[in-house]
Simulated scan of single mutants.
Amino acid sequence: MIDTNQIAAALEAREYKQAAQLIKQFQKESPENPWVQYYIGRYYELTNNLDKAATTYKQILRDITNPKIASQARQGIQRIETAQQNLREQAIESAKNDPSSQEPGLLILEAVSPEDKPAAIQNISRIFQTDIYTTRMQIQSRGWRLYKTGPIAELRVYGQELIGVGIPVFWATLADIQKIQIFQVQYFQSVSSPAVVCKDRLDRLGSIEFSWSEVTQQVEGLLPIFIDIMDYSPNRRNEEFRHKEITQDYAQVCDLHLPSRNCILRICDQNYEFQQGFDFTKSSEAIPASPTGKNKKARRPNSPQVPQSTTRINWNNLLEMLDEQLDVTVWSEFTPFAETVLDYTHMLSKIDSHIEVDRKSETPWDPAFQLYSGLAFMRNRGNS
């Protein structure tokens, strides 16, 4: 009969092979003994398998009522959290030796499925030492969230740890996003052999010929266009009339990513010259189809009761053409992402939006879209 003191002594002496044999024999002899799970957890902890150790200790707290074992399990969890925090700090300090490690960066939390959410909440709370309620409110079921900003070395360490526990994240530096070339498309000269007339960041007009196969992903977004109105309320004693900003309309933006050229072709319905180049006033049936026709989708009006403007009809025809030609990932959840970044006004003020929309005043929505598209571009390259 195995004595638990034998197991404890073997673990204390770092005789892990012997300890494993004793634990296995102990489990065979006394499978219902609650100390079995504790020593399994302790073995994992001492052999530096911290994730399995933490899982075992937490299972003990759920399933075992023995107060002494529960106390030992809590102490084990505390030791593991302290060890992981120390490892994290060491990794951050080590990464700081790289001169580029202090570049400002962003850590993006992707959507978490409902079934994965409980575990994600626990892990994020542990890694960032935040309370459960706050973490629960920050996890989104759709779209991305800007979760943390700071030196890229620190974000990379956090990101790798999060990925290690199955949480979808990625990170990028603002400098890398700003290195992406943005060309504002004025119109398509040709669709079958794609060519566009566009402006660069210096507002110089030129043309770009490319292949549809160079486009690896597409990013779409709606940018609100605001107007000021006089808002009347008889309930206000001193000021019945007030200026109020409301959304009048939306500018539609579509980005085509060409990573092999480190550039984005940006198309916006507010400045696209539909009277030039390829004729999008034709019906969608007249638009040339790709050989595969894989990605065809119907671009229906937002509301069948409201007649569409000519620009909107032409824009939908343009999008249908892109659907015909491309079979790529389409990122279209800009709005929920923007709602997580609009308060970062200082950061957004440093980002050139490369968006030409007639506005009375600047809005953070424009650089927020540039950030969203740039992040999608960097995500496609992979974390580094």
Rank of each mutant, 00 (worst) to 15 (best):
S190H: 06
L342W: 03
A289P: 03
K24N: 10
N49P: 03
Q189W: 02
E209L: 15
V330E: 00
R156N: 10
D358H: 12
K28S: 12
M1T: 10
I64Q: 07
I127H: 02
L22G: 02
D327M: 08
E154H: 04
V36W: 05
P118I: 07
I264V: 15
I108C: 01
S30I: 10
K24V: 09
Y44V: 08
E29C: 12
L223W: 02
E29G: 11
N271K: 04
P194N: 04
T65P: 00
G206W: 14
V219C: 12
E324L: 06
W331Y: 10
D269P: 03
A195S: 10
E320N: 11
I121D: 00
R79H: 09
M137F: 13
D203W: 14
R299Y: 07
I177V: 13
S283T: 15
E81F: 01
N262Q: 15
S30R: 13
N295R: 02
V341I: 12
M378S: 04
Q308R: 14
S190Q: 07
A95E: 05
H346S: 14
I127T: 07
N49T: 09
S373Y: 00
Y232Q: 14
S125L: 06
Y158E: 00
L202D: 15
K52P: 05
T329A: 08
G277V: 01
A376Y: 01
I127M: 07
M230V: 15
Y187M: 08
A9D: 03
D327S: 13
A298T: 08
R126V: 07
C198E: 04
S193W: 03
I264H: 04
I2G: 10
G293S: 06
